[in-house]
Nucleic acid binder design. Sequence first.
DNA 1: TCAAAAGTGTTGCAGGTACACCCATGA
DNA 2: TCATGGGTGTACCTGCAACACTTTTGA
Lengths: 264, 264
Amino acid sequence: MALTDDDPRASDEPAVPAPHADTARERTHIGWRPGAPGEQSYEHPLVAVDVVILTMRRRRLEALLIKRRRWPYEGLRALPGSFVRGDESLEDAARRVLERAAGVRDVYLEQLYTFGDPQRDPRARVITVVYYALLRADALPAALAGSTGVIGSGEDAAELTWFPVDALPPLAFDHAEILRYTLQRLRGKLEYTRIGFQLLAPEFTLSELQEVYEAILSRTLDKRNFRKKVLSTGILEPTAHTRKSGQHRPAALYRFNPHADSGA
Amino acid sequence: MALTDDDPRASDEPAVPAPHADTARERTHIGWRPGAPGEQSYEHPLVAVDVVILTMRRRRLEALLIKRRRWPYEGLRALPGSFVRGDESLEDAARRVLERAAGVRDVYLEQLYTFGDPQRDPRARVITVVYYALLRADALPAALAGSTGVIGSGEDAAELTWFPVDALPPLAFDHAEILRYTLQRLRGKLEYTRIGFQLLAPEFTLSELQEVYEAILSRTLDKRNFRKKVLSTGILEPTAHTRKSGQHRPAALYRFNPHADSGA
DNA sequence: TCAAAAGTGTTGCAGGTACACCCATGA
DNA sequence: TCATGGGTGTACCTGCAACACTTTTGA
C-alpha cells in the first residue's frame, strides 16, 4: 500500500507505525503492537487494497508506481494502496485509491487476488486485496501525462512514476509478485473478454488495438490475421473518421460496439 | 463463516457476538462494538476465510454446508469458515477449515475471490476470502460418506450436509452468490486446466471422468468426442486394471499422467 | 519518388461437432 | 438371451496460422 488512510491526497504510507514510531495517532491502530521489526504479535490482520494501475504509453504497457519515503523499503517503488475503511466496500476502497493516485474515476477495475502471507509486511499483519485498473492514456490528468508526477504537497508529497511492465524497478513488499500475477491474469482475460478495449480511447485504429494486444501478450501478432479475427467478431463498428499521423496513409477509426454479443 | 476460531472442531459460529451477547470472550474481539443489529460502527474489518468444499457424489457435484445454530440466519446452511489467525497464511486458514469440516488434507485448494461488502454480515464488518476445494469422494472420512455428518459434540456439535450444487437450500449471508461464482470459475478452469481430475480417485474410468465434466458444465457431452479429445491430450495413461460394476462389460481404468505437458 | 504505415486473400491444418452401432459381461 | 454400460470411426465445418504485395499520404 502507499497512500494513507487518513489524508485525502497524501503520503505513501499507511497508518501503521514504523518500529520505533509511537505517536498517539499511530497507536490508535489495531493489529499492531510495539516490538522490534519482524516481531509477530498481532491478533487480527489489517486489510488493505493495492491497485495495479495500467495504461498504454509510448506503445508499451506501463504501471503507475509510487516511491516509498519511509521504512520499510524506503526509496523503492510500490503499488498505490490504502487501508479499507469501515464503511466502504473493497471496490470502493480501490476506486478511492485510484482517484487519489491517478485522478480518474469510472475506469475498468477488477479484483485480482488477495495476498495474505503473515510476513509480507514487516510492520504488521496486513492482508491486501489487489485490484487492477485499465486506464485510457487519452484520459489521464495532466499531472500524469508525463513519466513522473507528484501528488500531495509538502511532507506528504508522493512521487508517482510510470514504468513499462517489462522494465520494472525493484519493488517493495511482494509487489513484484503481484505485478507478475496481474500480467498473467490480463493475458488470460485478453483471450476471452474485451478488456483490450479498456486501454483505448473511444475511437481507435486497428493498429492501436493490435498494439494493446501485443503489449499485453509481449509478442507480435500477424496483422492480417488480427484484423480478420477482430472484425469477424462484429464487436467493432467503423466510424466515418480517420486519423492522420505522420506522412503516410491515414488509418480508419473504429468504435467498440457494446451491443455485440459475448465477451465481458 | 461457520466454524469458530477458538474450538478445534466445533460450533458453526465465528467469535463475533450476537447483538445482545456480551461475554468477556466475545468482547475481546475487535471490529465489533456494542450496538443494535445492523449498526455500523467499526473501525477495522475482520478477516475470515470460507471454503466451498465440493465433491462428486451420486454422479452429481455436491457442496458441503453447515447448519447455522445462531443468529443471524439461524437454521440456514452456510459455508464452513473461520477467522484468519494472526500467524497463519490465508491458505493455511482455509486448510484448517477444510480439515475441521471435512477431515481431509492435501486436497486441491484454490483462492476464489474476496467478498467485502460492508453489509454482508449483520454482526460486524467481515471481509471473507473464499477458497474452493475439490475432494475425491473415495477419500472422504466415514463421518461424511453419508449425506449428513456431525462434527464436534455437545453445545458445539455442528451438522454438515452435502447438497447438490443445482439443488441448494436457502443459504446464509452472501453464500448463494459465492456458490454461483464458484461454479462459474470452475467451468472456466475446466476448459484449460486439469482440475477435473481432482474430483476422481487415482484410477478412474473414462465414463467417470466424463461425469465430472458433465456435472460441472451441467450439460451432457458426446461420449466419442469426449474420449477422443481427452485421450489425444496424452495426459491419461491406461492401467492394467478394469472396474467391474453391475452385469455389464468392465471399464478400463486410467491414471492421470502428471508428466504430460500443459494444464494445471 | 520515396518513406512509412494502412490495408487486403488464400491455403493448409487442427480441432470440434454430429452421428449409430457392436462388444463384453452377469443375471 | 437380454439388459446394461463400454467402446469405437467418419465426414463436415470452423477457426487459426502462415505468408507478400498494393495503396495512400506528406515530405
